[in-house]
């Protein structure tokens, strides 16, 4: 099962133009957070924001729809998002917290929930939204893509960043410049090469662009909570959905990429094991 356990797979998109204007794809993360905030399911969320518009992600606590929307969009560098959880559950006083996390962060959180080390922190997490992730880049790698590979003066010149159609894209002055994904190999953080999880298998809800048409996201609802919150947001008219079978390229592409990550990184894990290097346990 390359996609992990899930209840339902759907192609979906936010119905709010304010969200769609700023979102990476279908705005599902923002729409779900806004809905959960409005309904009091969560009092705030820990997300990766980019307050300085230099593409550097900063862990941010958001407590309103405006703050959610200000933090919308995918970040392509590492955000130590979980580091803001303590602040969220302490000085922010949040009793019910949402988290937007990459697969590795999702695993970390679930482990923290399984062990009694994080008193009054992880037990306050009420919604864990996982985002699909193949690999992640240090800021220095992004700078290299922008300047050395795409000829930008600086990464800050880019107004949009995206990965799709086999390329890493930067937009400057309305013009898209693409860098083949294979050109980025070797620039990812080393840990990504032994990660077996593409689709945040331990989240309440996982989402990302792969499998759905442009402007839409593929959603996997996984837990009872994740499923009911997602369905409620759909019923409230904040999210529109289509069956995965009706959209191109559909679930087979997502499965292919998820399996590809497991196969490729499984081999790397074997290599490292042969060398006697330590490997994190996979679940």
């Amino acid at each position: 099962m390359p996609l992990g356990t899930y209840k339902e797979a759907l192609s979906a998109r936010s119905t709010d133009s304010k969200i769609l204007d700023v979102s990476q794809d279908g705005g599902i993360v923002s729409a779900l957070l806004c809905y959960a905030l409005d309904e009091g399911i969560i009092e705030g969320a820990v997300v990766a924001g980019t307050p300085d518009e230099d593409w550097r992600p900063i862990p941010t606590v958001v407590t309103s729809a405006d703050e959610v929307i200000a933090a919308a969009g995918t970040k392509y560098s590492m955000s130590p998002t979980l580091s803001a959880l303590k602040e969220a559950t302490r000085q922010y006083g949040l009793e019910k917290v949402g988290v937007v996390a990459t697969p590795c962060q999702t695993q970390g959180l679930r482990k923290a929930q399984a062990y009694p080390f994080t008193r009054f922190v992880v037990d306050k997490i009420k919604l864990l939204i996982g985002i699909y992730c193949m690999e992640n880049f240090p800021m220095a790698s992004l700078d290299t893509f922008a300047t050395a590979k795409l000829g930008f003066d600086s990464l800050t010149d880019a107004t949009k960043m995206d990965i799709g159609k086999g390329k890493f894209w930067l937009t400057k002055d309305g013009e898209d410049s693409g860098l083949a994904i294979k050109e980025t190999h070797g620039y990812e953080q080393a840990g990504c090469n032994i990660c077996m999880d593409y689709v945040a298998e331990w989240a309440d809800v996982s989402t990302g662009s792969v499998g759905s048409p442009d402007g839409w996201s593929t959603v996997l609802t996984r837990t009872d909570d994740g499923d009911s919150i997602f369905k409620a947001a759909v019923d409230a008219g904040l999210i529109e959905t289509k069956p995965m079978d009706d959209v191109k390229p559909g679930l087979p592409l997502l499965e292919k990429l998820a399996k590809g990550k497991k196969d490729k990184n499984g081999k790397e894990r074997e290599n490292r094991a042969k060398l006697g290097l330590p490997l994190p346990v996979e679940y």
């Binding site: 009092e43 407590t63 303590k86 302490r90 000085q91 922010y92 006083g93």
Partner: peptide, 20 residues
């Protein structure tokens, strides 16, 4: 963890103040 030399790690939010 948040009583620090020089004060406190952070102030509380208005929401927290009200809640406390």
């Amino acid at each position: 963890s948040d009583i620090r030399v020089g004060g406190m790690a952070r102030n509380i939010t208005p929401f927290t103040k009200e809640r406390l």
